[in-house]
Amino acid sequence: MAFKSLDELRAACLDLPAGNDAAADAVARRQDTLTKPRGSLGKLEEIAGWLGRWQGRKMPRLDKVKVVVFAGNHGVTAQGVSAYPSEVTVQMVANFAAGGAAINQLARLAGAELAVIPLELERPTGDFTQTSAMNEADFLGAVSTGYDAVTPDLDLVCFGEMGIGNTTPAAAIAAGLFGGTGRDWAGRGTGVDDQGLSRKFAAIDAGLARHAASLADPLAVAANLGGRELAAILGATLAARHHNVPVLLDGFVVTAAAAPLAKLHADGLAHTLSAHVSAEAGHRQLLEALQLAPLLDMGMRLGEGSGACLAVNLVRSALECHTRMASFAEAGVTDK
């Protein structure tokens, strides 16, 4: 998919298929026949129903699970908002390729394919305190790349990101979409000191002021204040909805990247679950704004899709119970 204009992308964000109620109802009916008190598996039963609804299957499956990590570099790092230099993005992409990162280990254990997609790392986005992070063509190109990364044959997809400095555009997007200042949304990211955190607050506030005229448009917020990897995540989340593929959202950056879809369409993120709430300052607040309840709270703040990939194991547990447990009739157990 190559989106040719913001209007074309906006139309795609508004034209979203609904979930399959009949499949979700069938999952719920089966759950009530299994050898357990009704509702006793709690969230696991809800996860099974969510899988069925968005896959359109009364017996969901997880044969093909994928983790897609998008990488980008950010001009706003010139404002001293990160504890690490931008070259670390390239170095970490190489580490992913060599199998040495946390996400490599978590993806293997979760039985998930891992794909890493770098987006013009040699050409950072614009410094949004001075100009737009991306012009329309750059933004649409990144969104389209993300869209094409999700195929209809997937049963579940997780998104991750790598981009030194990207908690700053994530916080800026959150503030642009939901109001507030840099201080309300920004955290320490990779571990900036107090002076770095103050610079981060100031950069976000400067970006919000510079782009104030466009804050009413969620897509303009994503283009002016975001980054290529965040735009790709937005496109990938949209593609997943169009292809009926359920999504596990990772931490603060991924959630902020997908948030414009929720601002454009009331049910824009209904096909997603929040895998975890990260230790990054604004994530819990962002999840509350989006009315998403996290599956895990592990104090993680790595990114890379690590929290989402960890939650794949919970989803697999929900599926195993749904598909492999015996019914009362099959087990010869008396149902009350």
Rank of each mutant, 00 (worst) to 15 (best):
M59E: 15
I117L: 09
R241I: 04
E280K: 11
P260L: 11
R108I: 03
D7C: 01
E8I: 02
G180V: 03
K4A: 06
R210Q: 06
R53C: 04
F252A: 13
V221G: 00
A239K: 04
A279M: 10
A28D: 08
G99F: 06
H276F: 14
C309H: 04
A223M: 13
M300T: 07
G299C: 08
M162L: 11
L177G: 11
G227P: 11
V312E: 05
R29D: 07
E45G: 02
L51H: 10
H74P: 10
N244F: 12
L292R: 15
L106F: 14
F328C: 02
R108Q: 09
G303F: 08
D148H: 13
G111P: 03
D21C: 03
S274A: 15
A28Y: 06
D193W: 07
I204S: 08
V69Q: 00
L62A: 08
A98E: 14
L286V: 11
G191F: 13
P152F: 14
Y84N: 11
K336N: 04
A22M: 03
A259K: 10
K36I: 13
A175T: 10
L230F: 00
A212S: 15
R183T: 00
G19L: 05
G42S: 08
A259Q: 07
S132T: 12
A94G: 03
A262E: 07
L154R: 12
L290S: 08
H211P: 05
W185F: 13
V90H: 07
Y147R: 11
L314M: 15
A326Y: 02
A186S: 13
S274P: 06
A174T: 10
D32N: 08
V81I: 15
T323C: 12
V68R: 12
D7E: 14
W185S: 02
R108D: 10
Q291H: 15
G141F: 05
R29Q: 05
G80R: 05
A23Y: 00
L234A: 13
P246I: 13
L310E: 04
C309T: 15
G180D: 01
A71I: 02
L261P: 07
L261K: 03
F128N: 08
H74R: 12
L248V: 14
H74L: 15
L238F: 06
L197C: 08
A11R: 10
A115S: 12
V150E: 09
D21L: 10
G42A: 13
E113R: 15
M59Y: 10
L215Y: 04
H322C: 09
E280D: 09
M59G: 01
V245D: 09
L197W: 00
A240I: 05
T255E: 02
E113N: 04
S198P: 00
F3A: 03
G99Y: 02
C13M: 12
A326E: 03
G251T: 03
F128A: 06
I103K: 00
A170G: 11
V81Q: 05
H211G: 05
D297Y: 01
Q105N: 09
S40T: 08
A212Y: 04
L290P: 10
L140R: 09
A112N: 14
M92V: 03
T151C: 14
I233D: 05
M325P: 02
T237S: 15
K66V: 05
